[in-house]
Design a protein around this nucleic acid. Structure first.
Length: 177
DNA sequence: GCAGTGATCATA
DNA sequence: ATGATCACTGCC
């Protein structure tokens, strides 16, 4: 059924800020050793490409960030501070390094905690976000009103010069009831 | 407020 | 080979 359809590579072949915005409210689904985990995405950051000084790809391709230069819809996973795995989804055209960092979903807040909750590590890096990879997105069917979306500067990128202040972090306010 | 933690990358 | 850095977290 459409409301549970898996997001395809085409969904991610757009500018990272648009993808980050549109991922809010979608479901991040993972097969873990404890079974299927399904979390609503509520925080994401866009890393726009080679011109974005906060983006890993802005300093050229390295072994670590090579996945970012690949096709949209693949996972880019790397280790930060020697302890925390960061989960990103690659966006845009091959050759252009852009991605969206997943920072929060469901009740899990923080990018390192998110990967820990989902059992994600480097072994996912480079895989396409399909059921075959074990981690994917599904459409939630929920319409997100513009009023529930906040934008702020990104976290932890103080080195990025004029890009520090760009409002590329997207947050979904919990629905009130 | 800051220590932990270790892969990664630039420099040499 | 060496040293600085780091898209974070947890405990002080």
């Amino acid at each position: 059924m459409a409301s549970r359809s898996v997001l395809s590579a085409a969904f991610f072949d757009r500018p990272a800020d648009r993808v980050a915005r549109q991922l809010l409210g979608m479901h991040l689904v993972a097969r873990t050793h404890d079974g299927l985990v399904r979390l609503e995405v509520n925080e994401a950051e866009a890393y726009l490409g080679s011109h974005d000084l906060a983006c890993h790809g802005s300093r050229g391709m390295t072994k670590r960030n090579a996945t970012m230069f690949g096709p949209a819809g693949c996972w880019y996973v790397y280790l930060c501070y020697g302890m925390h795995w960061m989960l990103n989804i690659v966006t845009g055209k091959p050759g252009e390094p852009a991605a969206v960092l997943l920072r929060g979903a469901g009740k899990v807040s923080g990018p390192g905690r998110l990967t820990k909750a989902l059992g994600i590590d480097r072994s996912l890096d480079g895989a396409a976000a399909t059921k075959a990879s074990g981690v994917w997105f599904e459409q939630s069917g929920t319409t997100i009103s513009a009023g529930r979306i906040q934008r702020t500067p990104r976290i932890g990128i103080g080195y990025a010069g004029e890009w520090v202040e760009k409002p590329l972090r997207f947050l979904l306010t919990p629905a009130s009831s």
